[in-house]
Amino acid sequence: MTAALRALPTVFSIGLQRQLAYRWNYLLRALFSAVPLLVSWVFWEAVFQGKETVGRYTLAGLLTYYAVLLIVEAVSSPADDDFQISREIREGMLNPILLRPLPYGLYRGALFLSGRCAYLVAAFIPVFLCFFILSRVVHLELASFDILRGLPALFGSALLQFSLTLCLSLTSFWFLDISSLIFLVYSLEFLAGGHVFPLDLLPAPLFTAARFLPFAYEYWFPAAALCGTLSHREWQIGIGMQFAWAIFFLFFAYFLWKAGLRKYTAAGG
């Protein structure tokens, strides 16, 4: 186990080098991820015509939420880890990895971390520019920005997204093509995760139901924690739910890995 832990910085370094080799791809990705913010700004400005608030949000509050979502996405969303894992399983590329004295989950975790670091480097300037431009035209509600509650929620979101990605990708042991499953979960993450609109704009019963699902803790919860719009009690329940879901998916991924390996056939050299 100590040997495995000693190998992690090397895996991280290789992953980082691999990711930074495609820095233009990351820069483009970061730039494009700012477009939905621009669209949301234009759309919500029209919605707020003649209205002070929509639900519990002012226009500035809502735009702050969308801007903070950019940070959440940069820190915690996997890039194409799901497709990479699926390819490794499908094309027999697991063989050399299985021979290494390194647990697969830790190996993927180090690569996920390196991917996030590379993306953060590439996304820093576009995200900073977004905040700068937005703050020039809208009075962003950053006074209640809560870094102390936001950081654990961001970490939890990264852990949850990584574990969920791991579970989805490991189904490749049984299915030839899992891209449809991945995109189906993406759509759920967007809707029930608060990516399209803050979940508290939903009617009360739907909002309550959404908070029982894991998706709410991927985007909405860390964004709301960072924006400082949650009470201490809401944050405590949220962080509990978030880590409970993350641990559940980690265990489930472990179970899938064990079951999948029994089915896996190593072919080729």
Binding site: Y22, W24, Y26, L28, R29, F32, S33
Partner: peptide, 8 residues
């Protein structure tokens, strides 16, 4: 590597 263009 231009996979990001689809996201774009």
């Amino acid at each position: 590597q231009a996979e990001s263009v689809l996201l774009g």
